[in-house]
Amino acid sequence: MSEVSSYNYPPQSEKFRCGFVAIVGRPNVGKSTLMNHLIGQKISITSKKAQTTRHKVNGIYTDNEAQLIFVDTPGFQTYHRNALNDRLNQNVTEAVAGVDVIVFVIEALRFSDADREVLQQLPAHIPVVLVINKVDKAKAKDPGVLQNFIDEVQQAYKFTQIALVSAKHGLGVAQLVHILKPMLPIGIPLYPEDMVTDKSARFLAMEIVREKLFRYLGEELPYAMNVEVEQFTEEDGLYRIYIAVLVDKESQKGILIGKSGEKLKKISTEARLDMEKLFETKVFLKVWVKVKSGWADDIRFLRELGM
């Protein structure tokens, strides 16, 4: 983890706890949605499609007792192998190496080989809290079914604690924070109490555009594209943001733009509105499409994108 300055609050700092918590799991189990609810603000993108998170995103929760620095990781990819997914998996491994606690997220009533493979990647010396997400659906069935499922998962790993949540509805999130606090080391906070992420506005703008792309395009295209911020300036209370969407083939460009440019216009408009809400200022946003063949297998290019 990078070094940051420390902040001396609250007064009872000798009892204050502060530490890093990695949120891990296979793709599409609700890790980003969980983190957004944990910190009370949307900073990590969400989508029904798997593998939307491509960067480690730090979300910061602070109260009078503790500061929890959550690390939202990409879903560990066990199937589609290319330079991009190898880099994503490396990001997961690096993220969990220096944390104090690991939150391992799975879906209620679903414990797959992919989940087991993620467990095998976790360091044995770091405590792991099992978080079973989407329990609202499971509880609608026979309560005994959920308990049997919990018993089954417990056989796979020596979990320190278990928490039941519905990340989508924010249920059980406060209890999860309560479970995590005592597991952190005593120490002064690393970030100001009103700070919810250490990511820049430039990075968050890029992630917002990626989220809209995942939400409004077909099943295949989002995995062959990425976004990069080409210009980000602030003048007189206005953010001017220019973002390029990278696709692998010329034929994908038309799919993204849509008939008469309507699809790209819808994506751009919704992204701009989200940015204005997040940044609390007016935003001028320009989004266009560029073809960059083979970018997902170009290691050097991935490094330039910060992956």
Rank of each mutant, 00 (worst) to 15 (best):
M1E: 11
M1K: 04
S6N: 14
Y7D: 00
S13H: 02
S13C: 10
K15G: 08
I23Q: 00
V29R: 02
V29L: 01
V29H: 02
N36C: 08
H37N: 14
H37E: 08
K42L: 10
I43M: 11
R54Y: 13
K56S: 10
N58Q: 12
G59E: 07
A66V: 03
L68W: 00
L68V: 15
L68M: 07
L68S: 07
T73L: 01
P74K: 04
Q77R: 00
L84Q: 06
N85F: 08
Q90G: 11
Q90F: 11
V92D: 03
E94G: 13
A97I: 12
A97E: 14
V99Q: 09
V103A: 01
V105E: 01
A108V: 03
A114F: 09
D115I: 06
L119V: 06
Q121E: 14
L122Y: 11
P123M: 00
V129I: 07
I132A: 02
D142M: 06
V145M: 06
N148E: 05
V153Y: 00
Q155H: 09
A156E: 08
Y157N: 07
K158I: 10
Q161T: 08
Q161R: 15
Q161G: 01
V165T: 15
S166Q: 07
L176S: 08
I179V: 12
K181F: 06
P182L: 01
I186Q: 10
P192T: 07
E193Q: 13
M195L: 07
V196R: 05
V196S: 03
K199Y: 09
Y216H: 01
Y216N: 02
L217V: 01
L221N: 06
P222Q: 09
N226Q: 13
V229Y: 01
E230I: 14
Q231P: 09
T233F: 09
L238D: 05
L238S: 06
Y239E: 11
R240I: 02
A244S: 09
K249E: 12
S251W: 03
I257L: 03
K263R: 12
L264M: 08
K266N: 14
A271K: 01
A271C: 04
D274W: 05
M275Y: 04
M275G: 08
M275K: 09
L278M: 12
V287P: 01
W288G: 08
G294M: 11
R300A: 14
E304Y: 12
G306P: 11
